[in-house]
Design a protein around this nucleic acid. Structure first.
Lengths: 150, 150
DNA sequence: CTCGGTGCAAATAATTTGCACAGTT
DNA sequence: AACTGTGCAAATTATTTGCACCGAG
């Protein structure tokens, strides 16, 4: 079963009606390597369904997010969506600045981090940004100095 | 010299004219422990300057951000601003979910993180969320289970 | 005195909602 | 057939811009 079908199945299981549009959305997210903005999603859908309206896209994004088939992120550039990672165990990500593909990192820095006394840790975020092997090879990335984050 | 003065000085040095409003903004950020939304900032300023308009707040936030006296963040709840941390060396933060105060962490997990072969690291983000000692004591935080982030 | 800063109003952009009709189950 | 999903238009909310006047240096 392809990723698209898995997503469609997940939506169907939860009682959602599977329309042409939702199937296409599922496929879009199944195939997209990285993050998508509402506008990008709308543009893609628009090409397939010329009569499409923006609010339908927003509505479906929200529904799919509630069903946990996609996740919403607040990045510097604004709101973006990505297929839910699905990995059941705790992990973090490397995110390619060129293609936005994400690669899971299994190791977690939290257990090794010294916490100031009295501080009660609830959750944490660890994300690594850079260029993935594919993008480095194809050289179509912006120049990248291998510097360390300041 | 107080933090307020330091901020005002920094703005003045860069050629900004110091208006009453900007001084008050500087003071607000100097004294605010955590993050502020544009609306919170406007509300505060509004109390002092009844005739204040929202666009002036936005304009000043942008200027102050460009001068690096404040920083902008995209959080789940939207855009927020905070006084620039100012620590010159690489570090990360613990952020209190109650009062939003930030505490620097000196250790960095990056050097100990295994990077998938071929991935070129450019920068990273490591943030720890929880409850600071003050908020735990005063007990006015939401209930907090000491769980580990999934 | 000079030019940057401010208020006002209006323009944009991003997102949400109400309603009648169309399509999925 | 029953009810959910969609398009359309309009409402909100967030942010930006143009312009004439005011105040800091």
């Amino acid at each position: 079963m392809g990723e698209t079908e898995r997503i469609v199945q997940r939506m169907s299981d939860q009682g959602l009606r599977i329309t042409e549009q939702r199937r296409t959305l599922a496929q879009l997210f199944a195939e997209a390597p990285g993050y998508l903005t509402p506008k990008e999603i709308y543009d893609h859908m628009q090409r397939v369904y010329p009569g499409l309206s923006f609010d339908t896209v927003y509505r479906n994004l929200r529904v799919m997010q509630e069903l946990d088939v996609i996740e919403q992120f607040m990045l510097e550039e604004g709101v973006k969506f990505k297929r839910s990672c699905g990995e059941p165990h705790h992990h973090h990500h490397m995110i390619c600045l060129q293609c936005e593909k994400t690669v899971p990192i299994r190791s977690c820095p939290m257990p090794d981090t010294a916490v100031p006394s009295g501080f009660e840790v609830v959750r944490h975020k660890f994300e690594v940004y850079g260029y993935c092997a594919d993008c480095r090879e194809s050289g179509d990335r912006a120049q990248a100095s291998a510097g360390r984050t300041p």
